[in-house]
Design a protein around this nucleic acid. Structure first.
Length: 433
DNA sequence: TCTGGGGTCCTAGGACCC
DNA sequence: TCTGGGGTCCTAGGACCC
């Protein structure tokens, strides 16, 4: 049996943890640059604010009377990440074969064969997460991951009857859940597939399951066939590895405004490249390819649009910031054109492999070791003091490219310091967790 | 005025090989 | 008139996820 633990309205719940005045109010958290809605409280959902809605369109959905009630907050991803780590580590200590799927979701195996025992164990888990971390969580369990997803939705939508835990444990429960699940709400069925299935008269998960497997396979691809099988209770993901190394690492931002200065866009690219290389080192990997892209504003019709990307292969795979930045700058100079206004840029690392598996030749090896020691020293200093204590000289800029964050919550400013204190003090209670 | 960021997997089609 | 067949590898683009 697969269990799925899913945090309720995660980013909003994190904000409420440090600012209880947000409880009971319609709250939305906005993406970088305060662009789109990426999390909503139940109250905000009830007002009809859709996920991904551009911030300036919120009013259209709520009406002007309700709009004044809505609290908009700029995202604080560092905080959310830290809270996520606490939840995941609590789950890891209590559950078998934990697979962290995203910042607010994780799969694990149900510990018992008996449904009543599982139910008790999972309810206790939900209570403990709320007690020790303060975040409400829903847990669903079922024979496959896709069904566990549906079960967790049911738990989330019916908190009073389920107390946050719901199991699809027998055929009749599964059949009734599939009938009530719209096809577009099934994990793996997105907008395009929903449209296509609607055209074939398939509106619910139950109708989808009725479709013959051979027909699904001939009309769609293997991924859709897997989703189809999983809804029937056939596990298609058992062979997937528990720990998954990244195959690509990306860092990019939409700028706070339109930028024409070469220096400023270049500073952003250097910043992204450094950030990517830091993550690469954390994972003990090296990259063989660096890709850089720049683009204008796709929504503005009054300024000429330009978009381009360049990919370069490294002579020897590396994780050194010096090397990655060097190649990123080379790629950047191939695609940057004066006379255009830029709105976004990004760096992507590809051909990633574990450092241990790479063969260096004698001369590379020496250089590699030298740079490695330098990077380790810089990483140590930055992790001890602050991320930007030491950085490359080429990153200095006026910061014009940095995204806007107009809606940071004053009450959660500095909460990371409080938070570190909580972690330290919680160590005393470790055996209770 | 204002429209995010970071990933994965699959497929079709082209290039190339014998 | 008739212009192979089978295989691999790579890439771009589409679709999906949170």
């Amino acid at each position: 049996m697969y269990c799925l633990a899913d945090c309720n309205n995660f980013f909003v719940s994190c904000e409420r943890l440090y600012d209880p005045t947000l409880n009971g109010r319609p709250v939305v958290v906005l993406s970088n640059n305060d662009g789109c809605v990426i999390a909503r409280s139940n109250e905000a959902k009830a007002m009809g604010i859709p996920m991904g809605c551009p911030a300036f369109q919120i009013k259209k959905h709520t009406g002007s009377a309700n709009f004044s009630q809505v609290v908009q907050l700029s995202a604080r991803h560092t905080l959310y990440h830290d809270i996520s780590l606490r939840i995941m580590s609590l789950l890891g200590r209590n559950c078998e074969r934990l697979e962290v799927y995203s910042v607010d979701e994780a799969f694990f195996q149900a510990p018992f064969n008996d449904p009543a025992q599982n139910e008790r164990f999972l309810r206790d888990l939900v209570e403990r997460i709320y007690k020790y971390v303060g975040i409400p969580v829903s847990i669903g369990y079922a024979p496959t991951r896709t069904l566990a997803k549906i079960a967790s939705h049911i738990a989330k939508k019916n908190p009073t009857t389920t107390q946050g835990v719901y199991g699809l444990t027998d055929a009749s429960k599964i059949a009734s859940a599939l009938e009530k699940t719209a096809i577009g709400d099934v994990w793996g069925i997105g907008r395009r597939l929903t449209e296509s299935l609607h055209n074939r008269g398939v509106a619910t998960a139950a109708q989808f399951v009725e479709y013959p497997t051979s027909l699904i396979r001939s009309l769609y691809n293997i991924t859709v066939a897997h989703t189809h099988a999983e809804l029937k209770g056939i596990d298609c993901t058992a062979a997937s590895p528990v720990t998954i190394a990244h195959k690509s690492i990306m860092n990019s931002r939409t700028f706070g405004g339109l930028i024409t200065s070469r220096n400023e866009v270049q500073a952003a690219v250097v910043h992204f490249a450094e950030h990517c290389s830091r993550q690469l080192r954390r994972e003990g990997s090296v990259a063989g390819t660096v890709m850089v892209y720049v683009r204008g504003d796709r929504y503005r019709e009054d300024v000429p649009f330009y978009s381009n990307s360049c990919q370069l292969n490294l002579a020897t795979p590396s994780s050194s910031a010096l090397t990655i930045v060097h190649y990123a700058l080379q790629a950047f100079s191939c695609i940057f054109k004066e006379g255009f206004a830029y709105r976004k840029a990004g760096v992507m690392l590809l051909n990633i492999k574990p450092e241990k598996t790479v063969q260096f030749n004698l001369f590379d090896k020496e250089d590699h070791n030298k740079q490695n020691r330098l990077m380790q020293a810089i990483d140590r200093i930055n992790s001890r003091y602050a991320t930007q204590t030491i950085n490359l000289a080429s990153t200095s800029s006026t910061g014009e490219w940095k995204p806007r964050q107009k809606h940071l919550n004053d009450k959660t400013q500095g909460c990371l310091h409080i938070y570190s204190g909580m972690i330290a003090s919680s160590k005393k209670n470790k055996k209770n967790l």
